[in-house]
């Protein structure tokens, strides 16, 4: 086997499993650290009380922020919301459900059961939309005065980490299906995403759920939450 094929073999087998393990353990660490860092006295929220309100409050908050029109925050910026949701749909669905990834994971783990596979045409559209979304986010960071003031290297890093595997994978699909070199680039970018995600702002993959859960609890416990009809009386 040539060194190129050895690299491909490693990065789509053992290397991929290592990156996946780092990703899962890193995200788990974030969850444990977040929950461990909750302090009823410092946060001034009685987390252990009013479970009949706080537990539904957790799920209400997470659920509403997962729908593009369910919160005032999303509704206040409809175009941005639309672009974000399109981009995130691809970001989540393509890595999990594209046929090649499902097959490689099954093979690496030695299992027969796997996630369902997306039709190739659907995966192509989602990937194209995600790439467009990442580019729009990048342009927005350069153009919008609010974004420019807040943007740092960490933000550019996650745009690169997300965009690179999508661009390289999309190129393999539409331009050069037989190119082993391009497939290696895709494998490197994909594994890099998994390895670095827990150490970058990509940790929002799990921390979104943590902060939404915490705020959902706080609003439910302190301010009545769903007892107010689910809408905060500003």
């Amino acid at each position: 086997m040539s060194s190129l094929q050895q690299a491909i073999s490693f990065l789509s087998g053992t290397g991929m499993l290592i990156a996946l393990a780092v990703f899962v353990l890193g995200c788990l660490f974030h969850v444990i650290r977040y929950i461990g860092g909750l302090d009823a006295k410092k946060d001034r929220v009685a987390y252990g009380y009013h479970a009949d309100r706080s537990v539904p409050g957790i799920f209400a908050s997470i659920f509403k922020w997962l729908l593009p029109c369910a919160t005032a925050g999303w509704r206040s910026a409809p175009l941005t919301t639309f672009i974000f949701f399109c981009m995130h749909a691809g970001c989540v669905l393509v890595p999990l459900f594209v046929a090649g990834h499902v097959v490689l994971l099954k093979s690496a783990l030695g299992i027969e059961a796997g996630l369902p596979m997306l039709p190739l045409a659907v995966a192509d559209v989602l990937a194209a939309v995600t790439i467009a979304g990442v580019l729009i986010c990048a342009v927005r960071r350069l153009v919008s005065p609010f974004q420019k003031a807040l943007t740092s290297g960490a933000d550019w890093l996650i745009l690169f980490l997300t965009g690179a595997p999508f661009v390289s994978g999309f190129l393999v699909r539409v331009c050069c299906p037989d190119s082993a070199e391009l497939m290696l680039v895709h494998l490197v970018c994909g594994n890099l995403f998994l390895l670095l995600a827990p150490f970058t702002k990509l940790s929002h993959i799990v921390l979104f759920f943590m902060s939404r859960a915490q705020l959902g609890m706080e609003y439910a416990i302190k301010r009545g939450g769903q007892t107010r009809g689910g809408v905060f009386d500003w």
Binding site: Q5, I8, S9, S12, L104, S107, P177, D178, M183
Partner: peptide
């Protein structure tokens, strides 16, 4: 393919599943 050191690897999907 791995044993013979020839032929596409599992990660090279389109080399075997060639639409062309």
């Amino acid at each position: 393919h791995i044993q013979k050191g020839k032929g596409p690897l599992l990660a090279q999907c389109s080399s075997c599943h060639s639409q062309q």
